[in-house]
Write a protein that binds this DNA or RNA. Structure first.
Length: 593
RNA sequence: GGUUCCGUAGCUCAGUUGGACAGAGCAACAGCCUUCUAAGCUGUGGGUCGCGCGUUCGAAUCGCGCCGGAAUCACCA
């Protein structure tokens, strides 16, 4: 079935030609959805046409409207207000849409074609020295959702994770454990491995500070004390041993990392995210060196007297960037050059998205330029999905002040709130315990995920814990509730066949269908802009529209049997779109709540 | 100082390529459950869209300049 907006575009062109003998370029036709406060479905803006009609906006709109109604049997009527021609679309069209398009199970998603675009997306990228926190949650949810949205828009997606499993920060945890925790492991301590390792990281910092203080007391300058504190020297020594493949250090490193991974796995599972491939920095940190050396040979890069290798980016308005240290080792940038190349070799992609916070904007700007300088054609296909910081009402999260919101704690809290809320309402008392728990989980996680994903990724956001556990208004649970209501109606009317009938749709029904008509475009736009918030806001609008309809009109007790059948179809379709849209956000919907 | 991003109601946020008097939610107040789930629906109040100039028939949206905030500019990641 041809899209009605496309149809309107075409007949507008024809009408203009018939009326004023001008063939105007398609872009000149501006079609938008009619605003709520006016009657009509679609609006043609007539201002750009005045130069052809040589008449007033009102006359132009009227002439055009008259002509279009005559030309098309899908346009039932029109009205002109100021320079806006509002068109009323025929019932026939909306019913056809409901019956043929909206009804198809995968409505809104594009099929993956043979030559589909291949997109690699990196997200999560945690350090193995501490558990995941609220900031990681935004990253993970964004990455997962964008991956889903890209898939729905017909792309082949590969999700990858890059774990920062080496470096001085890991050694700090290891050292603190050696000093104070020998013999302890997550099982014996009864805690998650990532939390336990994180505690030792914090403990290291405490010891470090104590040592600085005592050095200062003994007359050492603070600056020197910070450099000479025994634990810091020990940690550095440990890193050196790690790099020298010292068996004992490596063994400890393996053990503690494995604790962390078990913890992460648990958190990922609860968040509902997964990866097609996980890379470890311990295996990639020396990558890129050869590429850089080749770049040096080709004269793209240059070497300083001390042996370090640099890229000159002054032509791009930036400064100079180090790529190899004077001792020949790689830096982060070098590593990213290497991993990008490795990934492209393993899985040739058409584009590569990095979901990384906006504090690394400069890094990715430079990465892309350097890769281009080094001659990689795909350098232009790297996108940095740069998202804003998550702040608390009282300001930034600071680990030193203990204001970091832990991911696991947060999920626990959300589920607890969902449980309390549900028990207060008492709607689920007749269900089994495990069924109820599943619902609390879905609702709690839905609230958290929606709260974060409804905000435009590039904006910094405030996470107010009080607000996040509000399940009314523009929230995940509101949308889930709408879905549960729909399922309830469908259960009660499951014997009745769902079908479009011969009677006219009422205004609210058309409003719903018109909104669902937009769903494919919403996915396309969200995919283009890498922005799940567009899907979130669409679903909220749809749920709100549905609730109004639900409130004003009875579905199962509609006036006629035919109307019941038609409404049930409409309701079923709305439910399916809510379900599929929420899935794009990684949110599950409960059948009851 | 350079670069990038943000500035919309008391608070949290929408506002697709410029279009009709700028929208939601929360908070406040007032209503609606013998009928399909009231985690819902309806109503009231609340705004110089940071400021100024410009482009345009038309600017929250585009351009320029200010003001305010964030991030970044390491032989850290």
């Amino acid at each position: 079935m041809q899209r009605i907006d496309q149809h309107i575009r075409e007949i507008t062109l024809k009408a203009v030609e018939a009326l004023w003998g001008t063939i105007l370029p398609e872009e000149q036709v501006q079609i938008q959805k009619t605003r709520r406060d006016f009657s009509g479905d679609f609006t043609v803006v007539v201002f750009p046409l005045l130069r052809y009609s040589k008449q007033s906006p009102e006359e132009t709109g009227k002439a055009l409207g008259r002509q279009m109604v005559e030309q098309s049997d899908l346009i039932d009527g029109y009205n002109v207000i100021k320079g806006f021609l509002n068109l009323i679309v025929a019932q026939r069209y909306w019913k056809g849409l409901l019956e043929e398009d909206l009804r198809t199970p995968r409505y809104g998603s594009s099929p993956v074609k043979e030559d589909a675009e291949r997109v690699m997306i990196e997200f999560s990228s945690p350090n193995t020295n501490k558990p995941l926190h609220l900031g990681h949650i935004r990253n993970n949810l964004l990455g997962h959702s964008v991956a889903r949205i890209l898939e729905a828009s017909g792309k082949v997606v590969r999700k990858v994770n890059l774990v920062n499993d080496r470096g001085i920060h890991i050694c700090k945890s290891m050292l603190a454990w050696q000093l104070e925790g020998k013999g302890r492991d997550p099982a014996s301590a009864g805690m998650k491995g990532d939390h336990m390792v994180g505690d030792y990281y914090v403990r290291f910092d405490q010891i470090y500070k104590e040592q600085i203080e005592s050095l200062v007391q003994n007359g050492v300058s603070r600056k020197d004390a910070e450099q000479e504190a025994p634990v810091l020297l020990q940690a550095r020594e440990m890193l050196r041993k790690w790099e020298a493949d010292d068996p004992e250090v490596r063994q400890l490193w393996e053990t503690m990392n494995s604790w962390v991974y078990e913890g992460f796995e648990d958190t990922y599972r609860r968040l509902g995210i997964s990866f097609d491939r996980t890379y470890y920095e311990s295996q990639t940190y020396s990558l890129g060196k050869e590429i850089v050396l080749k770049g040096l040979k080709d004269g793209v890069l240059y070497r300083k007297a001390d042996g370090s290798v640099w890229a000159d980016l002054e032509d791009e308005g930036l400064d100079h960037k180090l790529l190899l240290r004077s001792d020949g080792t790689s830096v982060y940038m070098t590593q990213d050059v290497g991993t990008a190349h490795q990934r492209y070799t393993e899985w040739p992609f058409d584009s590569h998205i990095y979901v990384v916070g906006n504090e690394q904007n400069y890094h990715f700007q430079v990465l892309s330029i350097i890769l281009k300088k080094l001659g990689f054609a795909w350098a232009e296909k790297l996108y940095h999905l740069s998202y804003g910081m998550v702040e608390l009402p009282e300001g930034k999260m600071k680990s030193r002040e203990g204001t970091v919101v832990d991911a696991d704690d947060l999920m626990d809290e959300m589920e607890t709130t969902a449980r309390q809320m549900s028990e207060e309402l008492g709607k689920l008392s007749s269900y089994r315990e495990d069924e109820r728990e599943q619902i609390y989980r879905k609702v709690g996680m839905g609230a958290l995920k929606y709260f974060i994903l409804k905000v435009d990724p590039k904006k910094n956001m405030t996470f107010d814990p009080r607000e996040s556990v509000d399940f009314n208004g523009n929230t995940g649970p509101f949308i889930q509730y709408t879905y549960a209501r729909i399922q309830s109606v469908l259960r009660k009317g499951h014997r009745i066949q769902r079908a479009v009938g011969s009677l006219d749709l009422i205004e609210k029904e058309i409003a719903l269908i018109r909104m669902m008509f937009d769903y494919p475009d919403v996915i396309t736009e969200a995919s283009r802009a890498l922005n799940p918030s567009l899907v979130a806001n669409f679903l909220y609008e749809l749920a709100k529209e549905f609730n109004q309809f639900y409130h004003d009109h009875s579905i199962l007790s509609a006036e006629s049997r035919e109307q019941v059948r038609q409404r049930l179809l409409l309701v079923e379709v709305a439910g399916r779109i809510i379900e599929s849209g929420m899935a794009l956000l990684g949110i599950e919907v409960p059948d009851r709540m």
